[in-house]
Design a binder for these strands. Structure first.
Lengths: 193, 193
DNA sequence: TGTACATCAGTGAACGCGCGTTCACTGATGTAC
DNA sequence: TGTACATCAGTGAACGCGCGTTCACTGATGTAC
């Protein structure tokens, strides 16, 4: 093997990083294979030595993002902190480093095949992460709170970005406050169950 | 004027209807001008007699959808019914007839110029609709509940569509239940304010 | 140690294709007389 | 009432362009001797 065995893996990782950022920033359809390779410091012809197709790149980049986002959000130990981190101005301003569901959700919801399956797994993983942070209530309430919290976080971020400017900032803060209110009532309710 | 004066307006409306459905079903980038015209029963060359560009079509189709969705959701007289209607299996299964934010949110959040402004207005209009359904609490709580409810509805729908199948149906029901819980506590809280 | 060699990561030109847009035209219509 | 005409909604071929993908190649590398 004439090249260091880690070399190709490292390049591939670099392409995945570039793709993950570019897709979240500008959308899957608006980012060409050439642009991804350019961002990775390579020429576009070499792409097919690493990936079978753009579709495969999308699926792998999505899985890549899922891992990174899991690390980012997995640090938090309670649901309130988790939600505040997600619905932060930092995340609002940097979709290219943030959650793939909030950055590409509607496009990915329409996808098929491997991309769609990867997206569904991505969501399930995030739900599992949330469920682990909800300890007190019944199983049903836990499921419900995890689903509702994720829905509120994702929707809140998408809408805040859609509004933009100070209106967007305001909306983000309002969603955060709403979710905080809704989640703070969970433990009280569970004690009454 | 050699043609009935309403004729062109009717054709234009037909193109807008076709575009609005096609975009929500398959996404803006994946739907060509030719496909829209074909769905409207016309040839694609005639498009530019009605619209300056595809971008203008997108903006006008979005405004068109906003009006229709406002009529659909405006019928409801309370927030719970409104949320249940939005987070219904019917809406889940028919993005092409439903909310543009849930169908195209992430793509539109990245848009610029007229499309982005139209999208922001679309969101504001929907928030206003929601605020009118929340009468009891303080102004701050009303804003907060409207933002949180919209976030939860939009996010819930996008994620349910992303999951697909029975997992999607389940998630939709859970978001609906969560939002129902969160909203039912509002009046009680307001009486304590 | 030094050199010839095989490997294969990366290059860059080329391809077919579908897109948004343009434009010369066609033909259905209401109006003028 | 009937006919010639002007209008303009809609047609369909054509355009330049950027896309995803292919492929013959180049040249940096580790290995063999």
């Amino acid at each position: 093997m004439p090249w260091p065995k880690a070399h190709k893996k490292e390049t591939r990782e670099r392409v995945l990083d570039a793709a993950a950022a570019a897709f979240r920033e500008r959308g899957i359809d608006d980012v060409s294979v050439g642009e991804v390779m350019d961002r990775a410091g390579l020429t576009h012809g070499g792409f097919y030595a690493h990936f079978k197709s753009k579709d495969e790149l999308v699926a792998e980049a999505l899985a890549h993002v899922s891992t990174r986002t899991g690390e980012w959000l997995g640090e938090t130990r309670d649901l309130k902190t988790h939600a505040d981190k997600y619905l932060s101005p930092m995340h609002l301003a940097h979709p290219e480093k943030g959650c793939a569901i909030a950055a590409l959700g509607t496009e990915l919801a329409r996808s098929t095949g491997r991309v769609h399956r990867t997206f569904a797994v991505n969501i399930q993983t995030r739900l599992e992460l949330l469920r682990e942070l909800i300890r007190k209530p019944s199983r049903q309430k836990r499921e419900r709170a995890a689903a509702g919290a994720l829905a509120c976080m994702v929707g809140g971020m998408i809408i805040a970005r859609g509004l933009g400017g100070t209106e967007g900032d305001k909306f983000l803060a309002e969603s955060r406050a709403f979710l905080g209110d809704a989640l703070s009532e969970l433990p009280e309710r569970s004690s009454a169950d």
